[in-house]
Simulated assay, not measured.
Amino acid sequence: MQALQFSATGSLDSLQLNDLPTPVPGAEEVLVEVRAAGLNPSDLKNVLGRFPYTTTPRIPGRDFSGVVVEGPPELQGKAVWGGTGKGFSFTRDGCHAQYVVVPANAVAPKPESLTFAQAATFGVPYITAWDALERSQVQAGTRFLIIGAGAVARAAQALAKARGANVVLGVRRAEVVQDLAAQGISAFQLPQADQLPELAQERFQQHLPEVIFDTTGYWLPAAVNAVGAFGRIAVIAAPVDGLISLPVLNLYRRGGSIIGVNSLLYSLEDCAKMLERIGAAFEGVLPIPDEFTELPLSEAVAAYNKVNEGGSEKIVLIP
């Protein structure tokens, strides 16, 4: 089979498309013919050595959709999606290949309303967003402020809206505010950090948000000052050095809590269960994604370099 593979981390120099033996599933495993695989920022970071536990040689790729070709009889021929979880593409081979082996209970039925390419865009951003919403208790009526407009922020907005939450996005650029408004999404341009509480309160009818989800890694101190009593702040990113100055006095005075969200803490089986719940919400509720670029697997190395150079569009690799 054709598969993307890297033999060393630290740069993209060792990343190449190789001819490798098709993997053989063991007991309680399935062999999936990959029809589409998402390219996430974490895939690039993996090759660049940002995850110290990665072993090489390794096939990257965390999100896939495809068809089961070997495994339990009840799964053979089924269209499935999966990926994202702990170890996948780090200590066991990922899905930027024609075939991938995973545990049989680590795949979920692909929603019929999604194409294979559309389904491959969901794993990492939607599972991350789902975990953030679950653990910060976003539900119907929750005043929910999302900071950022990337893939995870958009996923969180869609999932929270489906739950009936009162959702507002804070973004850096005015043109993004306009683009979101054209899609019917409430958003405002982020002010200076010390102005966030006032502006957030204005957007929620003179109430502070109950939950703030910082998807950027830079607004945590401002979020502490802008969240309401007993509020929750979910975070998924941080500055490169991992350090930030935090107004802890304001945090404990308002009974607030900070929740770190990391999809790598969950197994492939855990993530498949989340995808089942996410998939159930698609029928007429969640928006169907269309903002992505499909590229053949033969152009995967160029796609990685494009992301490394700052490209922001979602890329789906098609074996």
Rank of each mutant, 00 (worst) to 15 (best):
A3I: 02
A8I: 02
D13Q: 13
S14R: 10
S14V: 08
Q16F: 05
N18W: 04
L20D: 00
L20I: 02
L20Y: 01
P21D: 00
T22I: 07
P23F: 02
P25W: 01
S42I: 01
S42A: 06
S42L: 01
L44T: 03
L48N: 09
Y53F: 11
P60G: 07
R62K: 12
V69M: 08
K78G: 00
G82C: 01
T91E: 12
T91M: 14
R92T: 12
A97Y: 03
Q98L: 07
P103I: 03
A106I: 14
V107S: 14
V107T: 14
K110Y: 01
L114V: 00
A117W: 01
V124S: 08
A132N: 14
S136P: 04
Q139C: 14
T142I: 05
R143V: 01
I147R: 15
G148D: 04
Q157M: 13
K161V: 09
R163W: 09
A165N: 13
A165Q: 09
V167F: 12
R173T: 07
V177C: 08
V177E: 03
Q178D: 10
D179R: 15
A181H: 04
A182K: 15
A182P: 08
A187Q: 05
Q189N: 08
A193L: 13
Q195N: 07
R203F: 00
H207P: 15
P209D: 00
W219I: 13
L220V: 15
P221H: 14
F230K: 13
G231P: 05
R232H: 03
I233K: 15
A234K: 15
G256T: 11
I258S: 03
I258F: 06
L264G: 10
L265M: 09
D270I: 08
I278Q: 06
F282Q: 02
V285H: 04
P289Q: 00
T293P: 03
E299D: 10
A300M: 04
P319G: 06
